[in-house]
């Protein structure tokens, strides 16, 4: 009986020893030196792995930061962490942080089911990309929201929700980290990461329709009809292809109220600072 115990101990011990040796040598052979700066940077990052920075994940971004020189570093920005995180990262690197104003995602469409009533029934897989290929969408607007929520599905921060009543995605400005996932997801490019004004207000044209006024208006009551009322008020606003675009140089705090009231179809949206 004693022999058996000894034998067992020996055999199992031997197996364990051999396994340990193998592990040791493999770990030596495939040793990767840790990038300490990258690890330090990674610790500061939000670890959401959203890809908003353009890298595969936070650790990828961290190693890119650690390798970057001063000029390269100026182009690296974590939209989720924002200025706060980037200043910490810059401190680790010893560079000055890139200055970016806070921003949020905005949707350039107001084609809700009451404003742009459905003219056809969509009966296929719930995907904006598929819908975009097989038709102009329910409302008939070739540049409007398709109401299927591809953007909601990609948002990792719960900042986008689907409003069943209007059939439109809604951006929660409090939660939005401006990672840009929705910008990439929308097959019609209806999202934009837009900077907030000094007082935290937003001013933009919530339409992307380039059809002539009458054609656009036929499908959607909230469409920009290219009437040029806004560009008469502020010459920086350009109306091209029957569509007005408000550049960031137009100060939302100063012009917002006025422009939004002037727009006959309420396509210009002015939103004051989001309150908690």
């Amino acid at each position: 009986m004693d022999n058996l115990i000894w034998l067992n101990t020996l055999v199992l011990g031997g197996v364990a020893f051999v396994a340990a040796l193998v592990l040791y040598f493999v770990s030596r052979r495939f040793y990767v030196a840790p990038d300490e700066t990258a690890e330090k940077i990674a610790a500061e990052l939000p670890q959401a792995n959203c890809g908003g920075c353009g890298y595969a994940g936070c650790s990828d971004f961290a190693s890119a930061c650690s390798k970057a020189d001063e000029n390269g570093f100026a182009n690296l920005y974590c939209p989720v962490g924002g200025a706060k995180v980037m200043s910490k990262v810059a401190k680790i690197k010893g560079f000055s942080a890139a200055k970016k104003k806070p921003s949020v995602a905005v949707l350039h469409c107001q084609g809700t089911c009451s404003q742009a009533p459905a003219k056809v029934i969509y009966d296929a897989v719930s995907s904006c990309r598929i819908a975009n290929q097989i038709s102009v969408g329910k409302s008939g607007c070739p540049q409007g929201c398709l109401h299927l929520g591809d953007c909601v599905k990609v948002c990792k921060f719960g900042a986008l929700s689907f409003d069943e009543e209007t059939q439109m995605p809604v951006v929660d400005r409090k939660k939005c980290t401006s990672c840009g996932a929705c910008v990439k997801a929308c097959p019609r490019g209806l999202f934009e990461i837009r900077e907030l004004s000094a007082k935290g207000a937003l001013l933009y044209v919530a339409c992307r329709n380039t059809q002539k006024g009458a054609a656009a208006r036929k499908n959607c009551l909230s469409a920009c009809i290219g009437c040029q009322k806004c560009s008469k008020l502020n010459s920086e606003i350009k109306v091209e292809n029957n569509l007005s675009t408000i550049p960031m140089s137009v100060d939302a705090d100063e012009w917002g109220q006025q422009l939004a009231e002037a727009c006959p179809t309420k396509a210009i949206v002015y939103k004051e600072k989001a309150h908690a």
Binding site: I134, S135, V136, G137, G140, P142, Q211
Partner: peptide, 8 residues
């Protein structure tokens, strides 16, 4: 003009 899918 709009084609069969509605795109111009």
């Amino acid at each position: 003009l709009p084609n069969a899918n509605g795109y111009e």
